[in-house]
């Protein structure tokens, strides 16, 4: 599926078309499924993401007539729905971080060099980082991971979570402060890149 130049406008048009031609919604799926999957998998693991990533699109499909382009773009709307679904599995998410704090990392296929570098750095502080994530409030963690994993801008996070932009900023600051405290002055930052597919 080739995205037209103005994807945001086109996304909205596709959703509107899907009111009458439901199959058109597959265009939205094809565009965003990989990244929504990646986001959910980051929070709940692949096993859960196998189900919940698709659930996100089913929920979006069912609510497609409530999508309002005046309130923002389709992508953050999808991330908001994914975040809502993830929110139903808080304890599983907590257990995942608990396990990350403890378990030796499996080798995972990872092509991008910069991401490998970031991963190496992350492994060095893995227990602290995972514990810090577990210790964040739900709202702070949502904001942090929408930015860190989803790559959303503050205004997009605000749209996704339906909260004011100022709240996004304060939650993000709080989350990052806690991460820093948890890392206890270590400076493992060799990473320079945070692109996400």
């Amino acid at each position: 599926m080739t995205a037209p130049p103005d994807v945001a406008t086109d996304d909205a048009a596709v959703i509107e078309q899907s009111w009458h031609e439901p199959e058109r919604f597959a265009v939205i799926y094809d565009r965003y499924f990989p990244e929504i999957y990646r986001y959910v998998a980051a929070r709940l693991g692949r096993d859960a993401a196998d189900d919940i990533a698709a659930e996100t699109f089913y929920a979006a499909f069912r609510k497609r007539d409530r999508f309002d382009p005046a309130r923002g773009a389709v992508r953050p709307w999808l991330y908001g729905m994914a975040t809502n679904l993830v929110g139903r599995y808080r304890r599983d998410e907590g257990r995942r971080y608990a396990a990350l704090a403890r378990v030796a990392p499996e080798s995972r296929a990872d092509g991008h060099e910069a991401r490998v570098a970031a991963r190496v750095a992350a492994e060095g502080v893995r227990p602290q980082l995972a514990r810090a994530l577990a210790g964040l409030s739900d709202g702070d963690r949502d904001v942090l991971l929408l930015v860190a994993v989803g790559g959303l801008r503050y205004e997009e996070v605000a749209q996704a979570l339906e909260i004011p932009p100022g709240t996004v900023g304060s939650r993000m600051n709080r989350a990052r402060r806690k991460l820093r405290e948890a890392l206890g002055g270590t400076d493992p930052t060799h990473a320079e890149e945070n692109s996400h597919g």
Binding site: A118, R119, A122, L145, A148, A191
Partner: peptide, 8 residues
């Protein structure tokens, strides 16, 4: 990016 890498 550390967080993203850890969770990826």
């Amino acid at each position: 990016s550390l967080v993203a890498a850890l969770l990826d």
